[in-house]
Design a protein around this nucleic acid. Structure first.
Length: 235
DNA sequence: CACGACCCCTGGATGC
DNA sequence: TGCATCCAGGGGTCGT
């Protein structure tokens, strides 16, 4: 893919990466749950199992897309904006103002945790960072978004940005598969305050953390730090 | 249209 | 040691 073209730039919206050639063609890469993009210099070794695509560069280096669970994907299109997943994404969580963030979430009629995971509203927040952001902002995951004062939704938006910046600064969260292109795991998993800690004590107030299934994802929160202003009906 | 249930897939951890 | 079960960073599709 992209034979003969020079890679012009790498774009990203949420969890979707776009490798764009100087002719405008674009390769979309989504890592899903277990995907990796790994690079090796000329003559370097790369794992071969579960490799679904290999790109060779003129300098002899190469990079691969490997993905054991195959929840990820690779697409090739004539332009970035034609990539099917790209079109359906909302604005990137790191490039949105708190007021824009609040405006987009306010209308949702489902638990705020579910809304945070909707990539069409705001792109880039997954299960880990949804739980971590709600804890940072002191908001219960079952809260009805419209019941929150605008400034609380804006504070959540600001918390998302700070959180993602903190996580990116140390290479993200590696639970098992995630690796940077050079094979290095991230370090932010050591900073998680609620995700993966169900049943343990809250690091902020000491109360036992609660767990539930929300939007088909395990959700962990602190019943002491995270106030439920108004839950969605039925919950 | 918005939402939730279900499904896709492999492999690591845990329990018997 | 071996097997069964459960669980995991996501999201497309379909029914309501």
């Amino acid at each position: 893919m992209l034979e003969g073209a020079v890679i012009d730039r790498i774009d990203r919206r949420g969890k979707l990466m776009a490798i764009i050639g100087d002719d405008g063609r674009a390769i979309g890469v989504h890592l899903g749950m277990s995907g990796q993009v790994l690079w090796a210099a000329a003559g370097g070794r790369l794992s071969t199992d579960h490799v679904h695509a290999t790109w060779r560069l003129d300098d002899g280096s190469r990079f691969v897309f490997r993905d054991p669970r195959r929840f990820g994907g690779v697409w090739m299109f004539a332009s970035r904006d034609e990539l099917p997943p790209w079109q359906s994404l909302g604005p990137d969580a790191l490039k949105i103002t708190p007021s824009e963030f609040a405006a987009r979430l306010r209308g949702a009629k489902r638990p705020i945790k579910a809304a945070l995971l909707d990539q069409g509203l705001v792109a880039g927040i997954g299960n880990i960072y949804a739980d971590e952001a709600l804890h940072r902002a002191g908001i219960h995951p079952l809260t009805q978004p419209s019941s929150l004062e605008p400034d609380r939704l804006e504070r959540l938006g600001a918390a998302v940005v700070e959180l993602l910046q903190d996580a990116v600064a140390v290479g993200g969260s590696t639970l098992r598969d995630y690796r940077a292109a050079d094979g290095e795991p991230g370090g932010y998993q050591h900073a998680h305050r609620v995700y993966g800690r169900s049943g343990l004590e809250c690091l902020t107030c000491g109360r036992g953390l609660s767990t539930a299934r929300i939007a088909q994802r395990t959700t962990v929160w602190c019943p002491g730090c995270q106030e439920c202003v108004q839950p969605v009906p039925d919950e």
